[in-house]
Amino acid sequence: MAFLQLNALSKRYGAVDAVVATDLAVEKGEFVSLLGPSGCGKTTTLQMIAGFVEVTSGQILLDGRDITHAKPASRGLGVVFQSYALFPHMSVRDNVAFGLKMRKVPAAEIASKVKTVLDLVRLAPHAERYPRELSGGQRQRVALARALVIEPPVLLLDEPLSNLDANLREEMQFEIRRIQCAVGITTLMVTHDQAEALSISDRVVVMEAGRVTQIDAPYTLYEHPRTRFISDFVGKANLLPGDYDALGTPQVRQESGDGELTLSLRPEKIQLVNAGSGRLQGQVLDRFFFGSQWLYRIHTSLGEITVVRANDGSAPLGNGAAVGLEWPAELLRVLAADEVRP
């Protein structure tokens, strides 16, 4: 049995199904992300695990123990909130020590544990400061330290990075992963940011409209998205209609439910070759520069296709240039029709 297990977990608000029969098994030490657009039920799922939202039906098992209806205090989970939820009237040290004081840990042990965890999150010099005197990234780390110091069986992160600016967000992603690996703690993170989910998770759970639609390792999820929605939500994708003989033979030839086929081709998998060669002919509509990459929008007989090329120093194509598109046939994916229509 998995360390943290959700069995047919459901939450219903009046007539609205927020989470529908969700099954999930998280192994000990694993970092799992719940990914989905806002309103998909990922935060509700996290809050049910934390105990802040009552479960309508289903079961939550932690290390074999049924905690479905346990009070948050008795679950002993570490929770990091989107707003950080620091106690504004307490210093960093007191914020971090709070959980230990609640557990009636002796003062000397509290002091040493707080010091260890503040060292871990690199905040030891700021122990006496108050939350309002800290930057966003520092507050985030205090929240992390406060959740970790009680040595919880599971760490729950609710959109931990969404209040940080882009540069800091990337830095904190690595920081969270570093700390998670150092402590070896089982972690469940809620995020709407696919890049975040892909970069630091062992596995990603995609949720749509209250249902889990795919659970896979980040690479598998990106390379083999099951549905049109996932293909579009996780990374960029060119979604092309039917007739794939002209496009190269896809690996899997199967008809989806209603007989319509959608093909997905990642923009960075397409190579630009001389006009006249390649699988498809097109004309550059416009181009965008992202520093390390060029993004081209190319008009073809199959519609508009996005191509991303690394900025490798070669001269970029100009607007209006005629160009050929080439890709390895096996990278063209056949998608099932969306199971869930929002």
């Binding site: 934390a50 105990g51 802040f52 205090a73 989107q82 709070f98 959980g99 406060r146």
Partner: peptide, 26 residues
């Protein structure tokens, strides 16, 4: 911020402690 109260709860605070140490000061 209501989540500060939720944080205190998950850290093991009972109802009275929660009011006395978190809600009231805030």
């Amino acid at each position: 911020d209501r989540s500060a109260e939720q944080a205190a709860e998950s850290l093991g605070a009972g109802r009275f402690t929660l009011f006395r140490q978190i809600t009231l000061p805030m």
